[in-house]
Amino acid sequence: MVEHAAHAGDSLSRWVAVFTAILAALSGLLHYEEGVLQTQALIFKNDAVLLQSKASDQWSYYQAQSSKGHLMELAAELAPAERQPFYRDQIAKYETRKKEIAAKTHDLEKQVEEANHRSETKEHPQHLFGQALALLSVAISLAAITSLTNNRKLFVLAGAMGAAGIVLSVFAFMHL
């Protein structure tokens, strides 16, 4: 009878070992995917920050052109009639520049939105991979305790946690 119980424990230990090895291999793959997604999300977020900085610079340039245009309007009001065409040309030049700057800035702001969106699309599956990894880690821990206690119920719980982690990781892969 003791021999039969020892043999049953060896069988459970083998299943636990295989189960743990499979989950550890899967965890390695998920860690890699999570790291790639995190890096990509950070790169896109960094791009958004840089583009936002450029857009802010452009708005400052726009304000400078606007101020110069206002000074030219004041100068045109105060200048003699023969100098007024020069100032009107300057005003037109500044208005043209402002339109070009505004168009460029709006384009940069669209790029900021796109970069932020790309970052967010990488963050969602990355969070799912993190949650799947947590479940797999708990399953591996429970499997380790199972090998020490030979408690089959604990192994069933480890299997359920592992299965939940696998399902969540499949869901994460579907959102890539």
Score class of each variant (00 low, 15 high):
A24Y: 03
A24D: 07
S27W: 09
L29M: 12
L30W: 14
Y32L: 15
E33A: 12
E34C: 04
Q38G: 15
T39N: 09
T39G: 09
Q40M: 10
Q40R: 13
A41W: 04
L42A: 13
F44E: 12
K45Q: 07
K45N: 04
N46A: 14
L50S: 06
L50E: 01
K54S: 09
A55S: 15
D57H: 07
D57Q: 12
D57N: 10
Q58G: 05
W59S: 04
W59P: 00
W59V: 12
W59C: 02
S60A: 15
S66V: 10
S67A: 13
K68N: 11
K68T: 15
G69L: 06
M72F: 15
A75T: 08
A76P: 00
L78I: 07
A79L: 07
A79K: 09
A81P: 06
E82K: 05
R83Q: 10
Q84A: 09
P85W: 05
F86T: 09
Y87G: 03
Y87A: 03
I91G: 04
I91D: 12
A92C: 02
Y94K: 06
E95K: 14
R97W: 07
I101N: 03
K104I: 04
T105L: 02
H106G: 00
H106E: 12
E109R: 05
K110S: 14
Q111S: 11
E114C: 03
A115G: 02
N116T: 09
R118C: 01
R118H: 10
E120I: 02
T121E: 15
T121F: 02
K122A: 14
E123Q: 10
H124E: 15
H124W: 00
Q126D: 02
Q126N: 11
L128Y: 12
G130C: 14
A132Q: 03
L133H: 04
L133V: 09
L133S: 10
A134G: 06
S137D: 14
S137F: 00
A139R: 05
A139N: 02
I140P: 00
L142P: 01
L142W: 08
A143E: 00
A144C: 13
A144W: 01
I145Y: 00
T146P: 04
T146C: 05
L148Y: 02
T149D: 09
N150V: 06
R152V: 15
R152N: 08
R152K: 09
F155P: 01
A160F: 08
A163P: 00
A163C: 14
A164F: 11
A164K: 10
A164T: 03
G165Y: 04
I166H: 00
